[in-house]
């Protein structure tokens, strides 16, 4: 048990290292010298000083080591020009993105699970076919399309909800926070519902064919209880893994949606940093996303063994 966890944890660290090193390498690959991009009209002296300052004349691995050392100590670097600390930006923007993704994930599952369970139970019925066709269409609907539709109609035409948002932190005013969050969350949620619902449905259909479901039925357990207590849990393993891996898609979606609605989250900050060529900041953002993603999946690995006792045992034996 401990051994597998250690291995998994080491793997997690390795992934983060490789990913950050690759992004670090990429910043070095780009054409032209960053200093002339930051101060295109600076004198040669100024440029040399900045190069020195940024440590750009050291070998790549040393630069990487330095960045990593700082990162591990919680110093995420500074913006080139304004010297603004990346830490403060992260402190204000990460919670916004996390809130957005959390809501999206929560509502997607909240809607997808009952849909998946009931359509699986009534597989082949009109209800099932209708829901399935809708979800198939939703799969083809990119989240930016949903975001733009919302922005056009709910935001611009009918003016029901604010579009240019300055997200009010939840603790300050929950209601305001929600009015600003509503459209971004819907835009991010719709596509996920389709993914989760369709995967759960097909897993549930398979589970409902299992012998132990007949056993439960033959015990006289009511259908509702069979669906939720007996069939859902064994069917939810795939769903769970997918929900974890989906954090990757969710992060991508959050970047797009934040940009469409102007939500001041990490996704928006990342694109800003990219456009302004703020590489040290970008480097830290990418690392944070990688860590976030890998950690979520690590946590899910653990949850996995909670949900399925067979895995729990296989591991403790190994």
């Amino acid at each position: 048990m401990l051994r597998t966890f250690t291995l998994k944890f080491l793997r997690l660290v390795l992934v983060v290292l490789v990913v950050t090193f690759i992004t670090f390498g990429l910043t070095k690959l780009q054409p032209g010298d960053p200093v002339s991009k930051i101060i295109p009209f600076g004198t040669a002296q100024q440029k040399a000083a900045l190069t020195q300052d940024l440590g750009l004349n050291e070998p790549v691995y040393q630069q990487y080591g330095k960045w990593l050392g700082n990162f591990l100590q919680g110093d995420f670097g500074k913006y080139y020009d304004s010297k603004q600390s990346v830490n403060t930006v992260i402190k204000t923007s990460l919670p916004v993105s996390l809130e957005l993704m959390l809501y999206a994930q929560f509502f997607a599952l909240l809607i997808a699970i009952p849909l998946g369970v009931t359509t699986a139970y009534r597989a082949g019925s009109k209800y099932d076919r209708g829901a399935n066709a809708t979800m198939f269409a939703l799969l083809a609907l990119p989240n930016f399309v949903v975001a733009l539709l919302l922005a056009i109609y709910v935001g611009a035409k009918w003016q029901l909800l604010p579009t240019q948002s300055n997200v009010i932190p939840f603790p300050l005013n929950p209601l305001d926070n929600w009015t600003y969050m509503l459209m971004p969350v819907v835009a991010l949620t719709l596509g996920q519902i389709a993914v989760y619902m369709r995967l759960l449905r097909s897993d549930m259909i398979a589970t409902l064919q299992e012998d132990f479901i007949t056993t439960a039925k033959a015990k006289g357990i009511p259908t509702r209880r069979i669906l939720w207590r007996h069939a859902l849990r064994p069917s939810s393993l795939t769903l769970l893994t997918v929900a974890g891996l989906n954090v990757g898609a969710l992060i991508g979606g959050a970047i797009v949606v934040e940009n469409v609605f102007g939500v001041p989250g990490l996704g928006k900050r990342i694109t800003e940093a990219i456009l302004a060529k703020q590489y040290p900041a970008l480097q830290s953002y990418v690392a944070i996303i990688a860590i976030l993603y890998v950690t979520v999946n690590f946590a899910i690995d653990i949850l996995y063994s909670v949900l399925d006792p067979r895995i729990r045992n296989a591991r403790s034996v190994a």
Binding site: L14, V15, V18, V19, T23, L26, T27, L29, Q30, P31, V247, G248, A249, I251, G252, G253, I255, V256, I270, T271, I274, L275, K277, L282, V286, I289, A290, Y293, V294, N297
Partner: peptide
């Protein structure tokens, strides 16, 4: 596996922004 262990839009975003 390692390449897959990374949000793909972010990867594409990084590559494009670094390379032009």
């Amino acid at each position: 596996d390692i390449l897959l262990a990374f949000p793909q839009l972010v990867l594409a975003l990084a590559v494009v922004s670094f390379l032009g």
